[in-house]
């Protein structure tokens, strides 16, 4: 065999090994992330209380979930709080985003940074500080405090989801509606809202997901009769060791995952839309 050919073969095989290592590494990361959840899911169908030995397939743990009053009550609390928090924070966040869009440059930059702080700051600090506020103001911890806390951490996400839509708007649209006789509120409803609607819906789904998903802040702001699902799961792991936890966690994981996939798909679609429109005009 000619020497150049050998050299080429050598580099080629080196390249193959490199690609293999890259891919292997990615898979390794994914396994580390998802193996525990996968095991949890598999054992939620295990026909035994054991968490190590597989003794056949069953749906029993899922059925038992629905008979467990504590769990069903926490499902109820979680859903009520998540739905109300999502709706209210969407209204507040959208109004805030519209107000921010109308501000001057410097003011807007300031408010947007303030908006980012709760998103970036550690949840435990948000949770403790909100709890202290409730204790100080004399509110009894319960459904209401839980709801208020959820709204407060949901609003920034709605603002961050709606603001880009407002930035893409033609600044004269609102004036054009006023010009044609629409009062400011009706111009908002008939012209601005339809334009930013995708962002509003994405923000609302995001808020709902975060509410369902939240543990830390809920832990500090809920009362004894208003425990959310994640708090119930946490409590269960401390009291009794039951495969019900596996089943419940699996359900929660799947719900949150589905919502996140929807939100992400919507966001990437929203970001593509304006480009497509420009192409149409050309």
């Amino acid at each position: 065999m000619a020497p150049e050919k050998l050299v080429r073969r050598f580099w080629e095989s080196i390249r193959h090994i490199k690609t293999f290592i890259y891919r292997f590494y990615v898979w390794l990361v994914l396994v580390f992330f998802y193996a525990p959840i996968f095991v949890l899911m598999v054992f939620s169908f295990n026909n035994s209380k054991s968490r190590t030995v597989w003794l056949g397939f069953t749906f029993d743990w899922y059925l038992q979930l629905f008979k467990d009053e504590t769990i069903m009550h926490s499902v109820y609390v979680t859903l009520v709080v998540a739905v109300l928090a999502a709706l209210l924070s969407t209204v507040l966040g959208t109004a805030a985003a519209i107000g921010i869009a109308g501000m001057g440059k410097r003011q807007r930059a300031l408010i947007m940074n303030v908006t980012y702080i709760p998103v970036l700051s550690p949840e435990i600090i948000t949770g403790v500080s909100i709890m202290l506020l409730f204790v100080w103001s004399g509110l009894k911890l319960g459904m209401l405090t839980l709801l208020l806390a959820h709204i407060s951490f949901d609003v920034p996400f709605v603002i961050l989801s709606v603001s880009p839509k407002l930035r893409q708007l033609d600044p004269h649209l609102f004036e054009a509606a006023l010009d044609l006789g629409a009062k400011p509120m009706s111009a908002m409803r008939k012209v601005i809202l339809p334009q930013i609607w995708p962002g509003v819906i994405t923000g609302m789904l995001m808020a709902f997901t975060l509410s369902v998903d939240d543990f830390v802040i809920s832990y500090f702001t809920s009362g004894p009769t208003s425990q959310t699902l994640s708090i119930t799961i946490y409590a269960m792991t401390r009291k009794r060791v039951s495969p019900e936890i596996n089943a419940l966690s699996t359900l929660l994981f799947i719900v949150v995952l589905t919502l996140l996939v929807i939100v992400n798909l919507r966001q990437s679609r929203d970001n593509k839309q304006p480009q497509r429109k420009e192409e149409d005009v050309r």
């Binding site: 033609d170 004269h172 649209l173 004036e175 054009a176 509606a177 006023l178 010009d179 044609l180 006789g181 629409a182 009062k183 111009a187 012209v191 339809p194």
Partner: peptide, 16 residues
Amino acid sequence: PYKRHVNTVFQRYALF
């Protein structure tokens, strides 16, 4: 503007 008998054609049209 919504009470004036004046209408406007905007620079970049501002169609809805």
